[in-house]
Structure formats: structure tokens, C-alpha cells
């Protein structure tokens, strides 16, 4: 920037916009400590009671556990499926590679609500045909969340595989290393940071999923996001702020760890 005026303008503008993005989260964390029974500003005082109250509500407690469990499953299984697929996409040239890539990334492109509706109807039709219940069950939810996580894993892992210098693998091969050895001794150490980053990122992506889960939760089996939305449809108080704060803390920690292993903006 050559003149001082635009430089100042950009700085002030950027700070204001960043504030607009971050401020709401700061506000809800602040509200979670308000002592007022009815939400109002400024607070009469501060308390930690809302955290106890949130914990006493089964939908939040169980929702949190279910979400953590589902996200863990989604993250690990998406590595198991996504890493081999990413290897194939980056290592081999074959006809139809673009189509395959598009198929694998399609869960990110198809709107969550449409994908959720399609899966829900498929689950029910499957149940009608086989008498095996899927909708509202844990495996049904797990499968949907694996779908949410998979494209993120593939994106992040292929991005790191593309950056690999293949001559190292070739050198290892010429020295007699087998493909399995090459993968575990040469490729894996190089992409390990990306694997950790993508596992964490996929975990978060599954944890915050709302639209796909909407259709697939069952009675007594609600993810945290759905519990939050259903609570908000009727109430707005510091209980929900406490729940939100816990979620903000969990995700912030996970993403800050992710940030140590990969540039966060690589995922977008």
C-alpha cells in the first residue's frame, strides 16, 4: 500500500469485520456466567451455576457424549477409508480419476439437508425391506457422520500427498524396499502431521454437523447440535450459553492443536 490513508482504512475495516465474526462467540461465553435468571444486559452479577444446570439436563449431557463418540468413530474410520483413497488419487494415473474424486468429495457438495433426507428415506426403505432398523440407531448415525468426515480427510490428505517428493520413494524402491515398507517408513512419516490434522478436523466437522443428523437421530439418541437447536426453539437463557461455551472450548482446543500440524486454511 503506497499511501497511509488506505493502509489505515484497511486495518480499521479488517478489525471491525473480524470483530463482527468473533464478537458473538465472546458474547455467548460472557452470558454463560451471568447470574440473572432472565437474560438481560448488563448482568446483575456472575455465577457458575449455569454449567451445573446444563450438566443436569440429560439431553446436553448425553448429547455431548453421543457427539464425542460419533465424531471419534467418524474421524478414525474416515482415515481408514480416506488415506488409501488419497494414496490412489495422488499416486496413480487412471481414466476416470476426476469422476472418482468428485464422487468421494460429493458429500461436501450435496447440501446437508438434501443428503440427510435421502439417507433417512433410504434407511426407512431398507428397514421395510429387511426388517433391520437403521434410522435412529447408532450405526445409522455413525455412517452418516463418516460421510460428513470423509471429504475433509481426502482433501487434507491428498493436499499433503501431492507435496511429497516421489524421488525419495523411488530411491527407497531402488534400494530394495517393498511397497509396504515404503509406505510405513517413507510416506507415513512425511504425511503424519497431515494425518493428525485431518483426523482432528474430521472430528470437528462431524461434531458440529447439524443438517445430516437432523433426520437420523432417534428417541433418546440426540447429538449435541440437535439438543442445542431444539432447546433454542423454546428457550433462550444462560443454560444454553454454558453448553455453547463448553462446545467452543472443546473445538478451540482441537483446532489449535490442528493448527500446529497443518495450516488451517488448507482445508477450504
Amino acid at each position: 500500500m503506497n499511501a497511509t490513508a488506505p493502509a489505515t482504512f484497511y486495518r480499521v475495516f479488517a478489525l471491525a469485520v473480524l470483530g463482527f465474526i468473533v464478537m458473538p462467540l465472546a458474547v455467548i461465553v460472557w452470558v454463560s456466567f451471568f447470574s440473572n435468571k432472565i437474560l438481560s444486559f448488563p448482568p446483575a452479577g456472575y455465577t457458575l451455576d449455569w454449567y451445573t444446570r446444563a450438566w443436569e439436563r440429560p439431553e446436553f449431557r448425553e448429547g455431548l457424549f453421543l457427539s464425542l463418540q460419533t465424531a471419534l468413530f467418524a474421524s478414525l474410520s474416515s482415515l481408514a477409508i480416506g488415506v488409501p483413497a488419497s494414496l490412489a488419487l495422488t499416486r496413480y494415473k487412471f481414466a476416470g480419476r476426476d469422476i472418482v474424486t468428485n464422487i468421494l468429495l460429493s458429500p461436501m457438495v450435496v447440501p446437508g439437508i438434501v443428503g440427510g433426507a435421502a439417507m433417512y428415506i433410504f434407511y426407512i426403505e431398507f428397514e421395510v425391506a429387511t426388517e433391520v432398523q437403521v434410522a435412529g440407531t447408532l450405526p445409522g448415525l455413525f455412517a452418516a457422520h463418516l460421510l460428513v468426515a470423509l471429504p475433509w480427510t481426502i482433501r487434507l490428505v491428498t493436499a499433503s500427498l501431492i507435496g511429497i517428493d516421489h524421488s525419495i520413494s523411488e530411491a527407497a524402491a531402488s534400494l530394495g524396499a517393498g511397497p509396504v515398507t515404503i509406505f510405513f517408513r517413507v510416506v507415513l512419516p512425511v504425511i503424519k502431521p497431515a494425518l493428525i490434522a485431518s483426523a482432528l478436523f474430521a472430528f470437528v466437522a462431524s461434531f458440529i454437523d447439524l443438517e445430516k443428523s437432523l433426520f437420523l437421530v432417534g428417541p433418546g439418541r440426540t447429538t449435541l447440535q440437535i439438543a442445542i437447536v431444539s432447546y433454542l426453539e423454546w428457550n433462550l437463557d444462560s443454560t444454553i450459553a454454558a453448553v455453547a461455551t463448553v462446545q467452543i472450548a472443546i473445538i478451540a482446543v482441537l483446532l489449535l492443536i490442528t493448527n500446529r500440524y497443518a495450516q488451517l486454511n488448507r482445508a477450504f
Binding site: 462467540l25 458474547v27 461434531f207 458440529i208 447439524l210 450459553a241 473445538i251
Partner: peptide
């Protein structure tokens, strides 16, 4: 990545 539920809750507040 905070989730739309939480971010919307913040705007409601």
C-alpha cells in the same frame, strides 16, 4: 468450525 447451532445461539443472545 464452531457449528451453526452455537453461532446462531450467540446471535439470538
Amino acid at each position: 468450525m464452531m457449528g451453526n447451532a452455537v453461532r446462531t445461539a450467540a446471535w439470538m443472545v
